[in-house]
Amino acid sequence: MKEKKLRILIAKPGLDGHDRGAKYVARALKDEGYEVIYTGIRQTAESIVKTAIQEDVDFVGLSLLSGAHNELFPKIVELLKENDAEDIVVFGGGVIPEEDIPFLREKGIQAVFTPGTPIKTIVDFIESQRND
């Protein structure tokens, strides 16, 4: 049986407009053979979750550089849970201090990629979570 095509939402919550990283990851993941949807900047947690569910994605990648990750990332995980979509794997990236990572992991963010992470690492993570 052929492998299932994985769908990934790359989203930018909060107000920060630095989308270089998000766009790079979106494009690189496309080149790796995934189907990628990008939301654009300034997305609320609600709109990200609704989008993830409608698009029936397998992963949501959040990118944030303003430092609001401790508030916004967990909120998205919670909303997914509220909508019976906790099977969607959430990962994050951006300017995230090492010391915040355990907190985010505990809140259900499955992986956190800090600046400079090679795309290969993200792909390995995605493949390790494949569940079909």
Partner: peptide, 8 residues
């Protein structure tokens, strides 16, 4: 792969 941009 695909980058699905219409939704934007």
């Amino acid at each position: 792969g695909a980058l699905l941009g219409d939704r934007l």
